[in-house]
């Protein structure tokens, strides 16, 4: 469960996030949708405790990201934009490194890494160095790394960008599987179709504010548009007018 309450964040003169509030429930996939520069990444970085909000608060399963950031990080797995693997380590070593850093029991690490490798079906390239990985292989490995400490909440920053059709499908199936396990999945994207296909709830952000937060059907109804893309444009326009 991820709760965001009126967070603001400025970088110098740029007011990137201006009072974003939403909640992402357990067992649901919440899509954070918005044009480039809308404040999605900044919001996700606040949730990962990388940035401190200027105002407002955010909680991960009740743990405040500022006051209790270590506890918040324990409950979060994050797949950053771009996978951020170590090219000279193998997929297995990349995952095992995070397992050790997260403080997993020494004896349990090898087993847990193997389990992740099986779940994500990355055994084929698990013992190759990440340097030569395809985009899809990198993303899957990074997802495995994010899941190593079995976090209740998962934050994915534009995970499908640059993936081919098959890899995107595979990743979607995985995300659905994670949801079925009762996890809270928060997922950012600027691609309407993808969010529509996958998410239970959609939170549209534009100009640092939440334009609308509802289910796909709810958004269609409230904007009066059948096509989600039109609805998206209408929602963004609503913020611009306000």
């Amino acid at each position: 469960m991820i709760e965001v309450e009126g967070i603001h964040k400025s970088f110098g003169a740029v007011h990137a996030v201006r009072g974003v509030s939403f909640a992402a429930e357990d067992g649901r996939i919440t899509g954070l949708l918005g044009p480039n520069g809308a404040g999605k990444s900044t919001t996700l970085r606040v949730l990962c405790t990388l940035l401190k909000p200027d105002r407002g608060a955010a909680r991960i399963d009740g743990a405040d990201v500022v006051a209790d950031s270590l506890a918040a990080r324990r409950k979060i797995g994050s797949l950053p934009h771009g996978s951020g693997l170590y090219p000279r380590l193998t997929a297995r070593e990349n995952i095992a490194y995070y397992a050790r850093l997260c403080g997993l029991e020494r004896r349990a690490i090898a087993g847990r890494v193997e389990e992740i490798i099986n779940t994500l079906d990355i055994g084929d390239f698990a013992d190759r160095r990440a340097k030569g990985f395809s985009h899809g292989e990198r993303t899957k490995t990074a997802l495995g790394r994010a899941l190593i400490h079995d976090p209740q909440n998962l934050i994915l920053d534009e995970p499908t960008t640059g993936l081919d059709v098959m890899a995107t499908r595979g990743l979607r199936e995985l995300i659905v599987k994670l949801k079925a396990q009762g996890r809270c999945v928060l997922f950012s994207s600027h691609v309407m179709q993808e969010v529509a296909a996958l998410c239970d709830d959609i939170c549209i952000i534009a100009h640092g504010k939440v334009a609308i937060h509802d289910s796909a059907d709810g958004i269609r109804q409230r904007t009066g548009r059948d096509d989600l893309e039109d609805a998206f444009v209408a929602a963004v326009a609503m913020v611009e007018e306000a």
Binding site: L50, A71, R73, P80, H81, G82, G84, Y86, L101, H149
Partner: peptide, 14 residues
């Protein structure tokens, strides 16, 4: 530069 700093700092450790 590799983008590995962000996930590293998001891990539960000091």
């Amino acid at each position: 530069e590799r983008g590995s700093l962000e996930p590293l700092l998001s891990l539960p450790l000091a």
